[in-house]
Design a protein around this nucleic acid. Sequence first.
DNA 1: AGCGTCCTTGCAAACGACTGCATGCTCGGG
DNA 2: CCCGAGCATGCAGTCGTTTGCAAGGACGCT
Lengths: 365, 365
Amino acid sequence: MTARPPAGYGYVSAASLPSVAPRPTLRDVATQAGVHPATASRALNEATRSLVRPATVARVREVAAALGYQVNPIARSLKTSRSETVGVLVPDLTNPLFPPIVRGIEDALADSGYTVLTANTDNDPARTSSNFAAMQARQVDGFIVATALLDDPLMHDAAERGVPMVLVNRLTEHLDVSAVSADDATGIERTVAHLVELGHRDIAHVAGPLRVSTGAVRLRAFRAAMQSHGLRDDRVVEAEAYSEAAGRTALLRLLDGNRPTAIVAGNDLLALGCYDALAETGLSCPDDVSIVGFNDMPFINRLQPPLTSVRVPQYDLGVEAARLLLDRLSGRTVTPRVVLLPVRLVVRGSTAPPPTVKRPARAAG
Amino acid sequence: MTARPPAGYGYVSAASLPSVAPRPTLRDVATQAGVHPATASRALNEATRSLVRPATVARVREVAAALGYQVNPIARSLKTSRSETVGVLVPDLTNPLFPPIVRGIEDALADSGYTVLTANTDNDPARTSSNFAAMQARQVDGFIVATALLDDPLMHDAAERGVPMVLVNRLTEHLDVSAVSADDATGIERTVAHLVELGHRDIAHVAGPLRVSTGAVRLRAFRAAMQSHGLRDDRVVEAEAYSEAAGRTALLRLLDGNRPTAIVAGNDLLALGCYDALAETGLSCPDDVSIVGFNDMPFINRLQPPLTSVRVPQYDLGVEAARLLLDRLSGRTVTPRVVLLPVRLVVRGSTAPPPTVKRPARAAG
DNA sequence: AGCGTCCTTGCAAACGACTGCATGCTCGGG
DNA sequence: CCCGAGCATGCAGTCGTTTGCAAGGACGCT
């Protein structure tokens, strides 16, 4: 075996091409500035800069700039065991709920020099565990978690050990961690109020999976709201997942009995599924049944009919989560906080007064 | 100042709690297995395993498993100057085109043990540069770039220096890098053929920005297709961006003259903008004007009317890009390749035969 | 029986930055 | 004029792995 340069990098003898100049190291800067690497390090480092004579600082920084020096985050991480990187775990980036959140996180973190490692868990325990472990191994300084499963032992342990962690759009009662979420309860409350105002009395709820915190929270809010209006709060069916298919199935099950005049769907995807179910049953929205979604996904205003939905400030959710984490990382805040962001009911074409023909005993007019 | 443990990690005196066991290091494994760290390293490392006696390998691996040892990627990176990490640059994760691509990339890379660093550039040169630099500093092994701007000097230099890089959904002629893209030309060709078959002759193109490669490619394809049918190929207006607003503006400009019976939009967002413009002008789609989009975004089948569009296999685009990059990183392939993935025209309600009233001289029937 | 050759393993030097400690210098006060 | 304090800087070890080199042992062959 003859010695070979590593393949793939267009390696050439130094004579022929201006061979790729290796990135300058701290030592290069130091030498060129006529100081010891330690001094250069201190001069370049915000926190230790005060230990170095201003003139020296200036000289070092000049040289560094001239050489285009950038610290090697890897070497730094090895020594400091921090990485200026945070891990973001989402179930599925393809779900329109998450991109704005992730975007908000990235924007907010980038301002502080952090970068983001993302992974999709599909809410699958195995994937969650392995992704989480991989991120921990890469020394991420903290986590932002939008995944449902907090039962993951790895994650649970980590949280209890005090690994910085913020939950987005998911709450937990078992664990003492910061979380930021939309004010789902108020959203549901307004939704119910809106429907009641339109004249609905038979209102059903197609709930998201109850093992997911949003599913449980919204169901509870639905019950509370219905009770406060003195209405039956037990017309509820749980969807198996937050998906169109699950929404369709759930509503079909519900329509089997005597049908409600309005449906509060656990989220927009479920609402879309409800559209399908209604279409299959020959019912019309909103003439026969009104439907309200949750999240106000992009383009949902262009559906037929445009969906009334609760707008969740997803981007801000991400930004706020990032802030919480940054506070935690900087040591400013240590006690977990829960932040609820306000929501807004956006009324569109999918909600209308109930059909009066519903009570055939009365006059049809 | 009394010495203080670093804040925020629930630090306690070693006696009171089972203090957080630091992750075992290679040295721990070695000691416990009664070998030198170097041997342990070789035993644990796929590529060097053959240098170690099988019995020793087994012993080391057992101990490693028992201790729950995982290599420290940071230390490894420092030594090998590779990071098992790739950088992904997208303009905006919030644009529904990109999540599936990113997801495909992540899934394909995860299988090979790579993790993904993502950043949004907004197609802004400054953001692009700084993100790119930050990723390079973090020793990413390669890049997958979905951003329009290849003029970025940093990126351009990097590409020429042979930094592994794959373009997604963007092509370039100035640079010799691998790229994977949808077969846009064929998509447009099929679109035009479909419209012609329906009876359309006056077909216009609302093109995406021409400085973006997809904009240019699709325009060229449109011209070619029209010519091949012997039709006028100059009814074209360029949108300033791939956005609904730009699509609306562009079409309004176009409708000023005598109007076409069908519109080929540069992508779905532009098509949505066209919907708006038609609505404002009191025209109906598809009765007065047919519209075709590009990309087949999620939920676009639920619009009013459901949009005929060219389906692009976005997820596969991401997977393929990841594969190309992996090939490159493993040194198997060094010559750049361009991969075009097949597309499919999905016909829905936004396309119909042209209104016959258009030629008032003829019979109205 | 001796010697050469693998094969297996150990040694130690990196990779690049950070940091506790030591050192040398300057300056001021008595 | 001397000494101590304090500031600025240098020294060297360290983080956890990888890897070229060398050494030791076992084995086969003559």
